[in-house]
Amino acid sequence: MSQGEERAALLPVALGWPVMGEQGWLRETRAAYDTVAVDYARLVHGELAGKPLERALLATFAELVGNAGPVVEVGCGTGRITAHLRDLGLDVTGLDLSPGMVAVARDTWPGLRFAVGSMTDLPLPDGSLAGLVAWYSIIHLPPELLPGVFAEFHRVLAPGGELVLAFKAGDERIRLEQAYGHTVSYDVHWLPPDRVAAQLAGAGFAVHARLLREPEGYERGPQAYLLVRRPGGEAGR
């Protein structure tokens, strides 16, 4: 068995490990997304079709990863980005904090793998991934936790592994009490792209692409995207 095949074989087993390190913000975020899961899926299902820049960035990520090994989307929600990455040819699994979101993802995309877990304590072996995607999922973490989470991303990526992030660009915390037609209570953090890039570099990543997009439609501010790599290998290239 090759190293890539061994990693792929480990992944579904590892993703069955329990969520660790329960905290208040984590419980709130899980409860909110459990509440909104069905309506969230209905409202955002086809959204990526109207966002060519995001599709181009995901296609670049997929080309860089290639067939080097498994990919995980952390904070996969109802699975729309995970499914898109599968369609781009990646061996991908979705991981989300919310059992409600994962249940909808499994119903919507029955041919894909989804599991419950937290990005703060990833249930994965060291160096087991060729790629990692955090698509608007770091926005719910208290900003002081980001350096530790980025260190965790670095741990699970193999040398040469790729990481792509999407997040809301700014510097503020917004408390949501209504979302997707439901009463909820959780935080959304708008993050300065330069600070996030510096934190990624501090965790050992090399930043090799940045994109800042102006708001469109319902968005109330610019959107940021970073493509980074764990140095030391040639995953997918």
Rank of each mutant, 00 (worst) to 15 (best):
T120S: 14
T120G: 13
D121C: 13
L122M: 15
L122P: 04
P123V: 11
P123H: 11
P123C: 12
P123F: 10
L124A: 08
L129R: 01
L129N: 04
A130E: 05
L132W: 03
L132S: 04
L132H: 01
V133H: 02
V133A: 12
I139K: 08
H140K: 05
P142V: 03
P143E: 02
P143G: 01
L145H: 13
P147D: 12
A151H: 02
E152F: 04
F153E: 01
H154G: 08
R155F: 03
L157S: 06
P159I: 13
G160Q: 09
G160K: 10
E162K: 10
L163H: 06
L163E: 05
L165P: 01
L165G: 02
A166Q: 02
A166K: 07
F167S: 10
K168W: 05
A169E: 15
G170Q: 10
E172F: 11
E172D: 14
R173Y: 00
R173F: 00
E177W: 06
Q178G: 05
A179S: 15
G181S: 10
G181D: 09
G181A: 12
T183N: 12
V184F: 07
S185M: 02
D187Q: 07
H189W: 15
H189D: 05
H189T: 01
W190T: 07
W190E: 11
P192R: 12
P192L: 10
P192A: 11
D194L: 04
A197N: 03
A198Q: 14
